[in-house]
């Protein structure tokens, strides 16, 4: 029961953060929303008993792509127009 509740919570957070990443005009906030989506997706992988995939997703999705996007934003503009 608690398993099902945590999974429903994780899926709702994934959808909300993905929509926030799409619709936000502040690109730095969009990048942080993508990082949150990736982190909760790795929690979902861990709940589905794939800890290997969860580690790869957390390290690549939440850390490396965030670093690369932040570097790209620091070279361009922060706000979408």
């Amino acid at each position: 029961m608690i398993f099902l509740l945590v999974q429903i919570f994780a899926l709702i957070v994934i959808i909300i953060s993905a929509l926030a990443a799409i619709y936000s005009k502040d690109l730095l906030a969009a990048v942080v929303s993508l990082a949150v989506m990736s982190l909760v997706l790795s929690l979902e992988f861990y709940l589905l008993q794939a800890p290997d995939v969860a580690m790869a997703e957390a390290s690549v999705g939440a850390a490396l792509t965030t670093a690369i996007f932040v570097l790209a934003i620091s070279k361009t503009r922060r706000y979408e127009q």
Binding site: P51, D52, M55, A56, S59, V60, A63, L64
Partner: peptide, 14 residues
């Protein structure tokens, strides 16, 4: 344990 070369290397690189 779960993890290994790629995951550990990606975490060091991050």
């Amino acid at each position: 344990t779960p993890g290994g070369g790629f995951q550990g290397g990606a975490i060091i690189a991050s």
